[in-house]
């Protein structure tokens, strides 16, 4: 059975400690976590700003951000590819086919998720806090740090959703990273490669490892935010 072989392959990979495999796992985590960090650093404040700001066209912006949560990874990859190509506007940076390019592409995918969920959570929290914060002088955008801090456990969900999207996608990293062995090959591009080489058990085995990693990260984050939320009320 192919499925049974896949599990054997998965545990072989995990227990074998093959340096090439570990490098792939390491790069996957590095790229995805960097992308999620970038998206969080940009997206959390932007989401909070969008929650508090009132301007003409705000509704349209919210709809746009929500829609971009469904941005196809291939399209995000293509955009970054065209930006970073030597013939593109940012070509002189020489970033195409590097891990940095992969981080940019994934950050682009994760950003709308972080902004949209942050906007929603911050808006709800602000409705509850607004009068008190205004009373102690935190009017307008000065409420943002308090709202982000107090929403941190709920916001972890936004970050996790972004992490899930980034760690699972292959379209964007394949286009901008090039799946270069030992340099830009991640779990997902390796899965695509092994599939195309017809080694389906190994491909699924890699998939199982990826799922286990995602599971572990989700479990840790969920546990931490539950404990934290209980402490903070």
């Amino acid at each position: 059975m192919d499925i049974a072989q896949s599990f054997t392959a998965a545990f072989g990979l995990i227990l074998g400690g093959d340096p090439a495999f570990l490098a792939i796992v390491g790069l996957s985590l590095t790229v995805t976590l960097s992308a999620v960090s970038v998206a969080a650093v940009i997206g959390l404040p932007l989401g909070a700003l969008l929650a508090l700001a009132r301007f003409p066209g705000r509704g349209a912006v919210i709809v746009l951000v929500n829609a971009l949560m469904g941005l196809p990874p291939v399209v995000a990859g293509l955009l970054v590819f065209l930006l970073l190509s030597r013939s593109g506007p940012l070509g002189p940076l020489g970033l195409l086919f590097t891990p940095t390019a992969m981080v940019v592409a994934q950050a682009l995918l994760v950003l709308p998720i972080v902004i949209a969920i942050t906007r929603q959570l911050t808006e709800d929290l602000h409705a509850e806090y607004r009068e008190h914060l205004a009373s102690i002088g935190l009017t307008g955008f000065r409420a943002i740090p308090t709202l982000l801090w107090d929403g941190r456990f709920a916001l972890a969900t936004a970050i996790l959703a972004g992490f899930g999207r980034a760690s699972a996608e292959v379209g964007a990293v394949l286009i901008v990273g090039g799946n270069i062995a030992g340099y830009t090959r991640t779990m997902t591009t390796a899965i695509a490669l092994e599939t195309s080489k017809g080694d389906l058990p190994l491909a699924l085995g890699l998939g199982i490892v990826l799922i286990l990693l995602t599971l572990a990260i989700n479990a840790v984050t969920y546990g931490a935010s539950r404990v934290g939320a209980r402490f903070a009320g």
Partner: peptide, 10 residues
């Protein structure tokens, strides 16, 4: 306020 606004902190 009527309903005290408590931040999610100690």
């Amino acid at each position: 306020f009527q309903k005290p606004v408590m931040l999610r902190r100690s």
